[in-house]
Computed example of a mutant assay.
Amino acid sequence: MPAEDAIMPTGSAFISQHLPGFKHMRVPNRWLILGLAGSWGLILLASSTEGRRTKITGICFLGAVTLLNLPNIPRKLKYDISQREQFHRIERDFIGDLSRGVLEGEKVAFLPWGNDFLVNYAAARLKIATYNIGGDKNLIMARKHWPLSMRQFQKERPRGDILMEEFPEGTANPNTLINIAYLLETEDADAVVLPYVDLLWAAHGWPAPLKLRNNITPILEALEGYESIKVSNYDYYSTIRLSSKSSKGATKEIVKKIGAPLVSLPIFTEGWYGYEHNKNSKWRWSSGNSELLILSYDTGPIEVEVSFSIQSISERELRITGPSEELLFHSDNLRETVHVKIPRLVLKPGVNSLTFNTSTPPPEHPSDSRKLAFRVIDFSTYEVERSPLNTSQ
């Protein structure tokens, strides 16, 4: 509710602003819970006294609190019956359908990931292990422990442009195909589930619209053309698996067929803030010491050319080291934008890291609460021998 529509101030603004704990209360109606807890304390205090008048006051207070918190019983009963019916429909429709595509004890990745509230119930009900979880704070904690193969999928639902890069409508993003194959080939997942419903809002209202189907279909159609990949379609989702346990080389098969680079897009891990861009450039800010990872899908060493620009908020010392801890860049007084070009960086198969180390703490910034040390702009890799430019932030 806009502040100007309020009849009078309640005083809660002052408390929320100045008292520890209260200012971090995200949902304002939690004041009601605090009020009820305080009322219960007063009732207990009144009941424990010997004075008859005080006890009568406590009983009246109890009656008033109870009366004020009674719901509209007919409407509440109707709502609860509706919720129970929806729960049984989820069990029959979605859980029943999901049980046909995944097996007990399997590791399952649901993509694209998000605040996947329905997975909390589905995983427990079907006895599967999954990286996905519902609850925004739970998700933040879980992502810190995801394997690199899962962290490659960096676009979260349900923002406005949720799937425009990794799961665009009408076309299959080559990097998404590669990342799915790599997730399966590393055995970090036995199966990938691509649901057609939003797993957050489907838990709040069923039946749920199949609004993600148009984003999922191009991926399925593209992967059906590979011998090493098995796609199975169901009513509310599709599954992707390796066609057999021995289907190694699935990632390289896809890379070669679509003519993509044999190296992944950069994966920004600890120390980086979110992706930002304008019409000319894209970048990520770092809070200080940080790491950037590149995956090589080849079976042997590969040489790539790496280029990017780097800029610091204030003058700082910065060192960048490569996968073998070789020094790639060093500056004692980085401030203005500097272009960095590494003509021949050797990557081994699998995970390769570029480490950014600085001994200078980030300065205070009056218009931004983040700790901004430096930013990496337009990071790109180019395979020296064969492939076109691969750029992303």
Rank of each mutant, 00 (worst) to 15 (best):
A191H: 00
N179A: 10
N138K: 05
V197K: 00
R316E: 08
P174Y: 02
S286Y: 03
S244M: 06
I342N: 05
Y121D: 07
S307W: 06
V255P: 02
V231L: 00
T66E: 07
Y297I: 08
E270G: 11
V119D: 03
I33S: 15
E156F: 14
K348N: 09
V102H: 00
I56F: 10
L118W: 04
R157T: 13
E221Q: 10
P168C: 06
G249Q: 04
L347Y: 02
T360G: 06
K371Q: 12
E303H: 11
Y236A: 01
Q152S: 11
T321Y: 03
N390L: 08
Q86E: 09
A203E: 11
T337R: 10
E303I: 12
S47I: 12
G58Q: 03
A189Q: 00
L148F: 05
F308L: 06
Y182N: 02
A191Q: 02
L199V: 04
A260P: 06
Y131R: 02
E303V: 10
A202E: 14
S247R: 01
A203R: 10
I258N: 04
G160F: 12
I128E: 01
R53W: 15
E326C: 08
R125Q: 13
T337D: 12
G135K: 01
P9V: 08
N173P: 07
K211W: 12
D378A: 06
G58N: 01
N115K: 05
G96W: 04
L292M: 08
K279A: 14
K127D: 13
D188F: 00
V306Q: 04
G101A: 07
F167A: 01
A46W: 03
I320Y: 02
M164T: 15
H24Y: 13
S149G: 03
Y196F: 01
R344I: 11
F356Q: 04
M25L: 09
E385Y: 13
D235E: 13
N138S: 11
A123Y: 02
D378R: 03
I294Y: 01
A142N: 07
N280W: 09
Y234C: 05
L103K: 12
A373K: 08
K127R: 14
I294F: 04
L199N: 02
L118Y: 02
F61D: 04
V102N: 01
T10P: 08
T57V: 15
G96R: 04
E224N: 06
Y79W: 15
K107F: 01
G300C: 10
R241L: 01
S314D: 10
K107W: 01
M164L: 15
H145M: 11
S12K: 12
W201S: 11
